[in-house]
Design a protein around this nucleic acid. Structure first.
Lengths: 203, 203
DNA sequence: CGTTCAGTTGACTAAGGTCAATTCCCGTGG
DNA sequence: CCACGGGAATTGACCTTAGTCAACTGAACG
C-alpha cells in the first residue's frame, strides 16, 4: 500500500476509531483515481457504482433542466463524493457529478464498501453516520431554499465556503444560489453601493 | 395485543417479508397514540424521541421563520412520521410536526426501534430502506425547488396528492408550494382563464 | 492585435410580495 | 328562518426583484 492515504484515513478516523487492521483494510479496498477538469464522476442516466474521496480537486453536483444546469452542491478536498440516491438504489442517476478542477481521489466499489461496512470495526456505524450527515446537509439546503432569499443564500455560501468563491466562476455560484449570473452580479453591485465589508457583517 | 395493527403490518410487509414472530414483535413494540387537531407530534427545540405510523389523520412538517411557517411536507394515512434528523442525532428539532386533523397513530420509542432493527428478521434492511426512501424524497423536493416554478410545483402537488388538496387550506398548499396564499390564488385564476381541466392536461 | 469568454450593465418584462378591501362560505345565535 | 360573525379565499393597486435579451468592458491567450 503505497498511496498517500493519510487524508482519507484521518477523515474516517474523525468519524469512528480505527486500529491497525482497519487502516490496512482501507488501503486494500480503495484505489486511486483521477479526473481531469470537465471529466464526469458520474453522469445523468448512469448508475453510480462507487463512492469517491477527494484528495485534491473540486467537483460540482448538478441537474440538467433543458440545458439549464442547476448546481446544488460542491465536493472539495476531504469530502466523500457520490450520488447516494443512485448508489443506494442502483437506479440511474438523475444528476451529474463533474470535476471542475483536475482532481485526485480514492474510490471504492459498491462491493468493497459492503466489505468495509462489515469488516471495519465500526463499519456499520461509519456508514450510518455518513448517510446521516448527508441527509442533514440536504435538509438544511431544502429549508434554506424555502426560507432564504437569493441574497441571503449568497451570503451563507460565502460564509460557508470562503475559499471556494475564488476558485469557481460566478456562473457556478449563481447556479448554486439559484439565480442567473446577471442577478448575482446585481446583488454584488447592490452590496458594493451600501456596504464595503460584507464578510463580517451579514446585516 | 388487540389494536388494529393491520395497516402498520401490511405497510412494513410491503417493504420486507414478515413472519408470525415478526408481527407479534411489532405488536409489542408499538403503542397506540392519538393527536387532536393542532396537537404537536414534536415541536421545534425538542428532541424527537419516537417514530410514528399514521393510521388515520394528517400532519404537516414545517419550519417557523420569524412567524412565517414554511411547510415542506405532509404525512398522511400509512405514512411513517418523524423528524429523522433529530431522532437519529438526538439533537433538538429545527422543525415542527403538527396534526392538522385528529389523528390516530402507533408510535415506537428509540429504544424499541433499535430492538425492531435487531430482532426483526429483516430489521436492518427495513431501517435502511425507510431512511433511503426519505432521503430520496427529500432530494426530489430539493431538485424541484431549484428547477420548478411555483406553478409547476402546484401542478405536481395536485398530481401527487389529488385527494389531499381538498382536505387542507390554500394557506397550507401555498406554503408547501413556496408562495403566499394570494399568489397561489392568482395561479389558480390564471388557469381558470385559459384552461378549465387542469388535472388531465399539465400543458 | 484580435479572439474569446467571464463579468457587468441597461432596458424591459414577468411574477411574486405586501397591504388592504371585498367576497364567499359556514356555523352560531337571536 | 334569518342576521351576524369570523375565517378562508379572492381581488386590486403598487412595489420589489429576478428573468431576458443585448450591448459593452476587461482580462487572458495565442
Amino acid at each position: 500500500m503505497n498511496y498517500p492515504l493519510t487524508a482519507l484515513i484521518e477523515t474516517i478516523r474523525h468519524i469512528v476509531p480505527l486500529n491497525e487492521a482497519d487502516t490496512t483494510l482501507i488501503g486494500t479496498l480503495f484505489q486511486p483515481w483521477s479526473l481531469k477538469k470537465g471529466d464526469y464522476f458520474v453522469q445523468q442516466g448512469q448508475v453510480c457504482q462507487q463512492v469517491g474521496f477527494i484528495q485534491t480537486g473540486l467537483v460540482r453536483y448538478f441537474v440538467n433542466q433543458d440545458g439549464d444546469e442547476k448546481i446544488y452542491s460542491f465536493g472539495l478536498e476531504n469530502d466523500f463524493v457520490c450520488d447516494y440516491e443512485s448508489f443506494l438504489s442502483q437506479q440511474p442517476c438523475r444528476r451529474t457529478i463533474q470535476a471542475i478542477e483536475d482532481s485526485t481521489l480514492f474510490i471504492i466499489s459498491s462491493a468493497n464498501l459492503q466489505r468495509l461496512f462489515t469488516e471495519l470495526n465500526y463499519g456499520e456505524r461509519f456508514g450510518r453516520i455518513v448517510i446521516e450527515q448527508i441527509f442533514v446537509q440536504a435538509m438544511g439546503q431544502l429549508v434554506s431554499l424555502y426560507t432564504d432569499s437569493p441574497e441571503v443564500r449568497y451570503q451563507v455560501f460565502l460564509d460557508a465556503y470562503p475559499t471556494l468563491a475564488a476558485r469557481i466562476t460566478q456562473y457556478h455560484i449563481a447556479s448554486y444560489v439559484g439565480v442567473k449570473p446577471q442577478s448575482l452580479s446585481r446583488i454584488r453591485a447592490r452590496w458594493a453601493g451600501k456596504d464595503y465589508n460584507r464578510i463580517s457583517s451579514p446585516e
